[in-house]
Computed example of a mutant assay.
Amino acid sequence: MDLASARSAKLLTSRRIASHRFCFLSTQTIFFIPSRRTLGFHFRGVRCGAGVSAMVAEPRPVVKDRIDLTENEETIFRRLLDVVDHFKLNTQLRVAGGWVRDKLLGKDCYDIDIALDNMLGREFCEKVNEYLHSAGEEQQGIGVIQCNPDQSKHLETARMRICRTWVDFVNLRSESYAENSRIPKMKFGTAKEDAYRRDLTINSLFYNINTTSVEDLTGRGVQDLKDGYIVTPLPPKETFLDDPLRVLRAIRFGARFNFKLNEDLKEAASDDEVRDALMCKISRERIGHEIDLMISGNQPVRAMFYICDLQLFYAVFTLPENAQPEIVEGCNRLCVSHIDAAWNVLQLVGCSTFSDEQRRLYLYGALFLPLRNTAYTDTKSKKIPVANFYHPNSLKLKDK
């Protein structure tokens, strides 16, 4: 967008942005740079940066009392119950996690994960195919996703198409963690044990297909959803030390739904031991994946605000040791103020102005803009901008 079109859109005269200045880095990219007098939101009671737009109070979400199934979902669940009845399996079928949460919020969700109480996912999929064969219907291919702890996949998952929809199957489980490891020891568990091992109470809900009822086995998942709170089923520090990636997941879901982070959760997330565990136990690839989901999501500024507020910015966006000039105190907050200003411009010009990829790179560029004059020396004694360090090293993303 050129200057003329910006004027025609009244961007330069808007009261909301009158105290900012524009920096045009190319004919396609505008960075919105806040002046000193506009930096003004609160981090733990200290005025220190942008984020006003991201932290506006949101109304409480409307949570349904029951789950309304689509016609396709009814067909899928009926077929699964037919399999249970045909083989007299005495198996309870539960849809787990995000699908239940989203359906209660009145949102569409096509990610159906079935938790089984007395058999493995692969075994149940084979029973589905046996049933299809006996009914003279075409059998379906079964995909098995093996355990992959580096990708936070701790248990084998089976997948197959049912009524033109991919459905995942996994057994209910309980888990325990060895010291200094985020890879749990898994075993069959009860539905309640499975609910408590999950990252957040709003993700611990089940929809029991057999009884057509929502099961809130932590006793607070539905209420936290109604109140708009991000809470862990077990004590948060224990939860985060078991798997520090859950800190970033809590931030991502809090930002996505405009939910408040529970005070105990915030205290645990800011704990030095948890921060060190995040840096030492979690691969950079997994951290980068969570950050990329935040930046690509509907509330990237709120997510970055939480990361900064919880003193996790430099645990996520690690710096090379020999960066010069040295990063000044408060630079992390300035980075958040820049992405907030850039986000404001994006709302004014319209998100459809850019593709998803352009929007993503634009926000990354704004976030790292305060570091544009900081460089480090590589092994070949070549000076590299610090911003170029983040994607391939801190986040392990493609270096575009």
Rank of each mutant, 00 (worst) to 15 (best):
L69N: 07
G51Q: 07
A57W: 10
F77Q: 04
G51F: 01
F31C: 08
I30R: 02
L25P: 09
I76K: 05
F41T: 12
M55G: 01
D68G: 01
A54Q: 10
Q92E: 08
D82P: 01
R60F: 11
T75Y: 01
K88S: 08
A50L: 06
T70R: 08
D68C: 09
T29N: 10
F43C: 12
F31I: 15
I30M: 08
T27Y: 10
I67K: 11
C48D: 09
T75V: 02
T27H: 14
R21T: 12
N72T: 14
H86F: 11
I67Y: 11
L80A: 02
V52C: 03
A50Q: 11
M55Q: 10
L69Q: 02
T91C: 07
P59E: 13
G40D: 12
M55K: 00
A54G: 14
G49D: 05
V62L: 11
H42W: 11
E73S: 09
L69F: 15
I67E: 10
V84I: 05
F24L: 15
R66C: 02
K88C: 07
D65W: 00
V83E: 03
T91F: 02
A57D: 09
F43Y: 14
R79F: 08
T91Y: 01
P61F: 04
R44N: 15
G40W: 02
R94S: 02
R21C: 08
I67G: 04
R36K: 13
G49M: 04
D85I: 00
E58G: 03
K88F: 00
I67C: 09
G40S: 14
T91S: 05
C48R: 09
R66L: 01
M55Y: 05
I30V: 15
F77S: 03
R78Y: 06
T29P: 01
T91M: 06
S26P: 09
